[in-house]
Write a protein that binds this DNA or RNA. Structure first.
Ligand SMILES: [Zn+2]
Ligand SMILES: [Zn+2]
Ligand SMILES: [Zn+2]
Ligand SMILES: [Zn+2]
Lengths: 130, 130
DNA sequence: TTGGAAATGATAATCATTTCCATTTTTGTG
DNA sequence: CACAAAAATGGAAATGATTATCATTTCCAA
Protein backbone atom coordinates (compact mmCIF):
# COMPACT_ATOMS: atom_id res chain seq x y z
CA UNK A 1 0.00 0.00 0.00
CA UNK A 2 1.24 3.44 -0.89
CA UNK A 3 0.75 6.69 0.95
CA UNK A 4 -0.83 9.52 -0.98
CA UNK A 5 1.31 12.27 -2.39
CA UNK A 6 -0.04 14.61 0.22
CA UNK A 7 0.56 12.32 3.16
CA UNK A 8 4.10 11.77 1.97
CA UNK A 9 4.75 15.49 2.15
CA UNK A 10 3.27 15.86 5.64
CA UNK A 11 5.70 16.27 8.46
CA UNK A 12 5.36 16.68 12.18
CA UNK A 13 4.84 20.44 12.08
CA UNK A 14 2.20 20.24 9.40
CA UNK A 15 0.24 17.83 11.57
CA UNK A 16 0.58 20.07 14.61
CA UNK A 17 -0.82 23.00 12.71
CA UNK A 18 -3.70 20.98 11.35
CA UNK A 19 -4.49 19.82 14.88
CA UNK A 20 -4.59 23.36 16.23
CA UNK A 21 -6.72 24.55 13.36
CA UNK A 22 -9.14 21.70 13.98
CA UNK A 23 -9.25 22.44 17.67
CA UNK A 24 -9.80 26.18 17.37
CA UNK A 25 -12.03 26.17 14.29
CA UNK A 26 -12.42 29.22 12.10
CA UNK A 27 -9.60 31.55 11.12
CA UNK A 28 -6.34 32.30 12.86
CA UNK A 29 -3.17 34.15 11.91
CA UNK A 30 0.28 32.59 11.91
CA UNK A 31 1.21 34.61 14.96
CA UNK A 32 -1.88 33.48 16.82
CA UNK A 33 -1.32 29.84 15.95
CA UNK A 34 2.26 30.12 17.12
CA UNK A 35 1.18 31.63 20.43
CA UNK A 36 -1.40 28.91 20.99
CA UNK A 37 1.16 26.18 20.42
CA UNK A 38 3.65 27.91 22.69
CA UNK A 39 1.06 28.32 25.41
CA UNK A 40 0.44 24.60 25.22
CA UNK A 41 4.08 23.92 25.88
CA UNK A 42 5.18 23.27 22.32
CA UNK A 43 8.47 24.97 21.60
CA UNK A 44 7.82 25.21 17.87
CA UNK A 45 9.46 28.18 16.19
CA UNK A 46 7.65 30.94 14.38
CA UNK A 47 9.60 30.19 11.22
CA UNK A 48 8.38 26.63 11.26
CA UNK A 49 4.80 27.75 11.73
CA UNK A 50 5.04 29.96 8.66
CA UNK A 51 6.71 27.18 6.71
CA UNK A 52 4.11 24.60 7.64
CA UNK A 53 1.23 26.92 6.84
CA UNK A 54 2.75 27.74 3.48
CA UNK A 55 3.06 24.11 2.54
CA UNK A 56 -0.47 23.35 3.72
CA UNK A 57 -1.73 26.20 1.56
CA UNK A 58 0.25 24.86 -1.40
CA UNK A 59 -1.32 21.45 -0.87
CA UNK A 60 -4.73 23.11 -0.61
CA UNK A 61 -5.27 21.72 2.86
CA UNK A 62 -5.81 25.17 4.32
CA UNK A 63 -7.32 28.33 2.90
CA UNK A 64 -5.48 31.62 3.13
CA UNK A 65 -7.50 34.83 3.47
CA UNK A 66 -6.68 38.35 4.60
CA UNK A 67 -7.92 40.36 7.53
CA UNK A 68 -8.97 43.88 6.84
CA UNK A 69 -5.52 45.10 7.86
CA UNK A 70 -3.84 42.74 5.41
CA UNK A 71 -2.65 40.12 7.90
CA UNK A 72 -2.87 36.57 6.55
CA UNK A 73 -5.34 34.25 8.25
CA UNK A 74 -5.69 30.52 7.75
CA UNK A 75 -8.44 27.96 8.13
CA UNK A 76 -8.84 24.31 7.31
CA UNK A 77 -10.33 23.82 3.89
CA UNK A 78 -13.78 22.39 4.11
CA UNK A 79 -14.48 23.92 7.47
CA UNK A 80 -18.07 24.99 7.22
CA UNK A 81 -17.50 28.63 6.76
CA UNK A 82 -19.78 31.38 7.85
CA UNK A 83 -19.91 35.15 7.78
CA UNK A 84 -20.10 37.85 10.41
CA UNK A 85 -22.40 40.58 11.56
CA UNK A 86 -20.26 42.96 13.58
CA UNK A 87 -21.27 45.90 15.77
CA UNK A 88 -19.17 48.95 14.89
CA UNK A 89 -19.74 50.30 18.37
CA UNK A 90 -19.22 47.46 20.87
CA UNK A 91 -17.58 44.89 18.62
CA UNK A 92 -20.15 42.19 19.31
CA UNK A 93 -20.16 39.62 16.56
CA UNK A 94 -22.84 37.26 15.33
CA UNK A 95 -22.01 34.33 13.09
CA UNK A 96 -24.47 34.08 10.25
CA UNK A 97 -25.19 31.81 7.35
CA UNK A 98 -24.38 33.06 3.90
CA UNK A 99 -26.47 30.82 1.67
CA UNK A 100 -27.32 33.63 -0.69
CA UNK A 101 -23.68 34.69 -0.84
CA UNK A 102 -22.41 31.24 -1.67
CA UNK A 103 -24.74 31.06 -4.63
CA UNK A 104 -23.97 34.60 -5.73
CA UNK A 105 -20.20 34.03 -5.61
CA UNK A 106 -20.50 30.83 -7.59
CA UNK A 107 -22.74 32.36 -10.22
CA UNK A 108 -20.58 35.42 -10.71
CA UNK A 109 -17.39 33.42 -10.91
CA UNK A 110 -18.88 31.15 -13.54
CA UNK A 111 -20.23 34.04 -15.53
CA UNK A 112 -16.75 35.57 -15.80
CA UNK A 113 -14.85 32.31 -16.17
CA UNK A 114 -13.02 32.37 -12.84
CA UNK A 115 -11.90 29.19 -11.11
CA UNK A 116 -10.53 28.27 -7.67
CA UNK A 117 -12.93 30.80 -6.27
CA UNK A 118 -13.27 32.03 -2.73
CA UNK A 119 -15.03 35.01 -1.20
CA UNK A 120 -15.37 37.26 1.81
CA UNK A 121 -18.51 38.96 3.06
CA UNK A 122 -19.11 40.86 6.27
CA UNK A 123 -21.94 43.02 7.48
CA UNK A 124 -21.37 45.78 9.99
CA UNK A 125 -23.68 48.18 11.79
CA UNK A 126 -24.91 49.21 15.22
CA UNK A 127 -26.40 46.48 17.36
CA UNK A 128 -29.65 46.83 19.29
CA UNK A 129 -27.88 47.23 22.64
CA UNK A 130 -25.84 50.21 21.46
CA UNK B 1 -24.38 78.16 -2.88
CA UNK B 2 -22.71 75.74 -0.48
CA UNK B 3 -19.92 73.27 -1.06
CA UNK B 4 -20.67 69.66 -0.24
CA UNK B 5 -19.46 68.14 2.98
CA UNK B 6 -16.99 66.07 1.01
CA UNK B 7 -15.56 68.98 -0.92
CA UNK B 8 -15.11 70.86 2.31
CA UNK B 9 -12.94 68.04 3.66
CA UNK B 10 -10.80 67.86 0.52
CA UNK B 11 -7.35 69.31 0.69
CA UNK B 12 -4.56 69.74 -1.80
CA UNK B 13 -3.07 66.29 -1.27
CA UNK B 14 -6.41 64.56 -1.62
CA UNK B 15 -6.89 66.25 -4.98
CA UNK B 16 -3.41 65.26 -6.14
CA UNK B 17 -4.09 61.64 -5.32
CA UNK B 18 -7.43 61.70 -7.07
CA UNK B 19 -5.77 63.18 -10.14
CA UNK B 20 -3.13 60.46 -10.28
CA UNK B 21 -5.70 57.74 -9.77
CA UNK B 22 -7.78 59.19 -12.60
CA UNK B 23 -4.78 59.40 -14.87
CA UNK B 24 -3.50 55.90 -14.22
CA UNK B 25 -6.83 54.11 -13.93
CA UNK B 26 -7.13 50.77 -12.16
CA UNK B 27 -5.46 49.92 -8.88
CA UNK B 28 -2.19 51.16 -7.44
CA UNK B 29 -0.47 50.84 -4.09
CA UNK B 30 0.42 53.79 -1.88
CA UNK B 31 4.09 53.26 -2.65
CA UNK B 32 3.45 53.24 -6.38
CA UNK B 33 1.33 56.36 -6.24
CA UNK B 34 4.04 58.09 -4.26
CA UNK B 35 6.68 57.11 -6.81
CA UNK B 36 4.54 58.38 -9.68
CA UNK B 37 4.06 61.76 -8.02
CA UNK B 38 7.74 62.00 -7.23
CA UNK B 39 8.69 61.10 -10.77
CA UNK B 40 6.46 63.94 -11.94
CA UNK B 41 8.38 66.38 -9.79
CA UNK B 42 5.96 66.59 -6.90
CA UNK B 43 7.83 66.51 -3.61
CA UNK B 44 4.90 65.07 -1.69
CA UNK B 45 5.90 62.87 1.23
CA UNK B 46 5.00 59.22 1.62
CA UNK B 47 3.27 59.99 4.89
CA UNK B 48 0.98 62.45 3.19
CA UNK B 49 0.15 59.95 0.47
CA UNK B 50 -0.92 57.42 3.09
CA UNK B 51 -2.90 60.05 4.94
CA UNK B 52 -4.69 61.31 1.85
CA UNK B 53 -5.56 57.79 0.71
CA UNK B 54 -6.89 56.97 4.15
CA UNK B 55 -9.17 59.97 4.20
CA UNK B 56 -10.37 59.26 0.65
CA UNK B 57 -11.23 55.73 1.70
CA UNK B 58 -13.08 57.04 4.73
CA UNK B 59 -15.08 59.33 2.48
CA UNK B 60 -15.75 56.42 0.12
CA UNK B 61 -14.08 58.21 -2.75
CA UNK B 62 -11.61 55.41 -3.32
CA UNK B 63 -11.86 51.66 -2.88
CA UNK B 64 -9.27 49.78 -0.87
CA UNK B 65 -8.50 46.19 -1.79
CA UNK B 66 -5.59 43.85 -1.10
CA UNK B 67 -3.09 42.28 -3.41
CA UNK B 68 -2.41 38.60 -3.02
CA UNK B 69 0.55 39.44 -0.77
CA UNK B 70 -1.57 41.66 1.46
CA UNK B 71 -0.38 45.02 0.17
CA UNK B 72 -3.15 47.61 0.05
CA UNK B 73 -4.19 48.87 -3.37
CA UNK B 74 -6.46 51.79 -4.15
CA UNK B 75 -8.77 52.81 -6.94
CA UNK B 76 -11.28 55.53 -7.60
CA UNK B 77 -14.77 54.43 -6.67
CA UNK B 78 -17.41 54.45 -9.31
CA UNK B 79 -20.41 56.42 -8.08
CA UNK B 80 -22.64 53.39 -7.75
CA UNK B 81 -22.15 50.75 -5.09
CA UNK B 82 -20.62 47.55 -6.44
CA UNK B 83 -18.48 44.58 -5.53
CA UNK B 84 -15.36 43.03 -7.04
CA UNK B 85 -14.26 39.85 -8.68
CA UNK B 86 -10.47 39.83 -8.45
CA UNK B 87 -7.91 37.54 -10.07
CA UNK B 88 -5.47 36.26 -7.45
CA UNK B 89 -2.87 35.78 -10.11
CA UNK B 90 -2.84 38.85 -12.38
CA UNK B 91 -4.90 41.26 -10.29
CA UNK B 92 -7.48 41.87 -13.01
CA UNK B 93 -10.69 43.15 -11.50
CA UNK B 94 -14.28 43.01 -12.63
CA UNK B 95 -16.94 45.19 -11.08
CA UNK B 96 -20.06 43.18 -10.41
CA UNK B 97 -23.55 43.79 -9.18
CA UNK B 98 -24.44 42.51 -5.74
CA UNK B 99 -28.18 42.34 -5.82
CA UNK B 100 -28.29 39.15 -3.80
CA UNK B 101 -25.84 40.57 -1.30
CA UNK B 102 -27.78 43.75 -0.78
CA UNK B 103 -30.86 41.78 0.08
CA UNK B 104 -28.96 39.33 2.27
CA UNK B 105 -27.25 42.10 4.25
CA UNK B 106 -30.53 43.89 4.80
CA UNK B 107 -32.35 40.75 5.88
CA UNK B 108 -29.66 39.62 8.29
CA UNK B 109 -29.29 43.05 9.83
CA UNK B 110 -33.03 43.27 10.41
CA UNK B 111 -33.18 39.80 11.85
CA UNK B 112 -30.59 40.70 14.49
CA UNK B 113 -31.76 44.25 15.09
CA UNK B 114 -28.77 46.07 13.63
CA UNK B 115 -29.06 49.56 12.18
CA UNK B 116 -26.82 51.87 10.14
CA UNK B 117 -25.72 48.82 8.27
CA UNK B 118 -22.99 48.49 5.68
CA UNK B 119 -21.24 45.51 4.16
CA UNK B 120 -18.27 44.24 2.21
CA UNK B 121 -18.19 41.35 -0.22
CA UNK B 122 -15.44 40.32 -2.60
CA UNK B 123 -14.95 37.29 -4.74
CA UNK B 124 -11.48 36.13 -5.70
CA UNK B 125 -10.16 33.37 -7.91
CA UNK B 126 -8.13 32.70 -11.03
CA UNK B 127 -9.32 34.37 -14.22
CA UNK B 128 -9.65 32.59 -17.55
CA UNK B 129 -6.50 34.21 -18.95
CA UNK B 130 -4.32 32.90 -16.13
C1' DT C 1 -1.30 91.35 10.89
C1' DT C 2 -1.63 87.53 13.87
C1' DG C 3 -2.64 83.41 16.65
C1' DG C 4 -4.28 79.03 16.48
C1' DA C 5 -5.67 75.07 13.72
C1' DA C 6 -4.68 72.07 9.97
C1' DA C 7 -1.41 70.09 6.85
C1' DT C 8 3.05 68.42 5.79
C1' DG C 9 7.08 65.42 5.64
C1' DA C 10 11.36 63.53 7.60
C1' DT C 11 12.47 60.21 10.78
C1' DA C 12 11.80 56.57 13.83
C1' DA C 13 8.90 52.84 15.45
C1' DT C 14 5.89 48.72 14.52
C1' DC C 15 4.81 44.48 12.99
C1' DA C 16 4.06 40.58 9.86
C1' DT C 17 6.66 37.88 6.93
C1' DT C 18 11.12 36.12 4.73
C1' DT C 19 15.78 35.02 4.44
C1' DC C 20 19.97 33.04 6.31
C1' DC C 21 22.41 29.75 8.38
C1' DA C 22 24.00 26.74 11.91
C1' DT C 23 22.26 22.85 14.46
C1' DT C 24 19.34 18.87 15.20
C1' DT C 25 16.49 15.08 13.64
C1' DT C 26 15.18 11.68 10.45
C1' DT C 27 16.07 8.31 7.03
C1' DG C 28 18.19 4.89 4.20
C1' DT C 29 21.81 1.52 3.77
C1' DG C 30 25.15 -1.83 4.84
C1' DC D 1 24.21 -0.41 15.31
C1' DA D 2 26.98 3.04 12.58
C1' DC D 3 27.16 6.65 9.53
C1' DA D 4 26.43 9.88 5.86
C1' DA D 5 23.05 12.41 3.23
C1' DA D 6 18.75 14.73 3.27
C1' DA D 7 15.11 17.04 5.55
C1' DA D 8 13.47 19.74 9.24
C1' DT D 9 14.00 23.17 12.66
C1' DG D 10 14.38 27.65 14.98
C1' DG D 11 16.89 31.87 16.36
C1' DA D 12 18.52 36.02 14.58
C1' DA D 13 18.74 39.39 11.19
C1' DA D 14 16.70 41.45 7.04
C1' DT D 15 12.80 43.19 4.57
C1' DG D 16 9.05 45.98 3.47
C1' DA D 17 4.61 48.10 4.20
C1' DT D 18 2.24 50.93 7.28
C1' DT D 19 1.83 54.01 11.35
C1' DA D 20 3.26 57.15 15.07
C1' DT D 21 5.97 61.25 16.41
C1' DC D 22 7.02 65.72 16.20
C1' DA D 23 9.02 69.93 14.56
C1' DT D 24 8.02 73.01 10.85
C1' DT D 25 5.11 75.28 7.41
C1' DT D 26 0.79 76.80 5.39
C1' DC D 27 -4.03 78.44 5.96
C1' DC D 28 -7.40 81.39 7.31
C1' DA D 29 -10.66 83.88 10.00
C1' DA D 30 -10.88 87.69 13.11
ZN1 LIG E 1 -23.09 47.06 19.90
ZN1 LIG F 1 -19.61 32.25 2.20
ZN1 LIG G 1 -5.70 36.56 -14.07
ZN1 LIG H 1 -23.30 45.66 -1.80
Amino acid sequence: MRMSTITQRMNKSDLKLIAVLERTGGFASAQELHQILRREGDGIGLTTVYRALQSLVDDKIVDLLRREDGEAIYRLCGDNHHHHLVCKSCGDTVEIEGGAIEKWAKTMAEEFGFREVGHTAEIFGICSKC
